[in-house]
């Protein structure tokens, strides 16, 4: 196991008195797939929003790659290579799949503020955009508007867009939510593959996905860590079985 790449110390978030996340110490090791599980309302998505700076923590610190990012703006954190996906598929609906991926590629190109330049300057990115789409099996959908893609394909497009940034760490919020079985298997294989040289932290409800591909599992309940470890250990913790796995998930 590698060194710790993302760590939180006493991470806490309260919304008007309701404590959604309470004193969470999370440590994600480099190069692993780390799953965050727990029943609805356990605070998983809030932890994601805190880690990616979409919410400001009420207390606690977040350290990414040795740098304290607790007070950083979300776009700045994303530029560090810590990139998230969203629970509800997040694509640019009116743009084609190719254009979606290009928006991500454009950032490194450094032309984002060039309002006087022709968009033909972006053609240079098309080859890479198409390669990324082909890589996730969307080659035939390059010129389809994101809004017209079937749900599973939208989520795949979202992954391709995220990968276009070549992030060192991905935070995936329920990547297989609402997908048919064959789509789940495809996404599972894809996550496994992109994890080869990256760190992945994912919120996931589908226990077969969690069991198959994650190295470490953190179980959250009512905003606090209930258990942590590899699947075979976590699955045996009585409190976890009672709180979550015994509840018929799977």
């Amino acid at each position: 196991m590698g060194e710790i790449v993302l760590q939180t110390f006493g991470l806490t978030k309260a919304f008007r008195g309701f404590v959604a996340v309470n004193n969470v110490d999370l440590a994600v090791r480099r190069g692993t797939i780390h799953a965050l599980i727990g029943p609805n309302g356990a605070g998983k998505t809030t932890v994601f929003n805190l880690l990616t700076k979409f919410h400001q923590p009420s207390a606690g610190r977040i350290v990414y790659d040795g740098i304290d990012i607790t007070g950083e703006r979300p776009a700045a954190t994303a530029r560090r290579g810590l990139v998230r996906s969203f629970q509800i598929s997040a694509t640019f609906a009116q743009m084609t799949a190719r254009e979606n991926v290009r928006v991500a590629l454009q950032r490194a190109q450094g032309l984002a503020f060039h309002f006087w330049r022709s968009e033909r300057a972006l053609d240079a990115l098309d080859d890479r955009a198409l390669a990324l789409l082909a890589d996730v099996g969307l080659a035939d959908f390059a010129e389809v508007r994101a809004a017209d893609l079937p749900y599973g394909r939208k989520r795949t497009l979202e992954l391709a867009t995220t990968l276009a940034l070549d992030p060192r760490m991905l935070l995936l919020d329920e990547p297989t939510q609402g997908m048919a079985t064959e789509d789940v298997d495809r996404i599972k294989a894809l996550i496994k593959r992109i994890a080869a040289n990256r760190t992945i932290l994912m919120v996931e409800h589908n226990m077969s996905v969690v069991a198959d591909i994650s190295d470490t599992i953190t179980v959250l309940q009512r905003g606090e860590i209930l258990a942590e470890g590899p699947y075979h250990i976590v699955a045996e913790v009585p409190a976890v079985r009672a709180a979550y796995m015994g509840g018929g998930h799977g």
Binding site: F54, A75, A78, F86, F92, A104
Partner: peptide, 16 residues
């Protein structure tokens, strides 16, 4: 256009 379609997503891609 990306911001118009989905601002949180544009932020998550690193755009201020």
């Amino acid at each position: 256009r990306a911001i118009r379609d989905n601002e949180p997503r544009a932020i998550s891609l690193g755009y201020d």
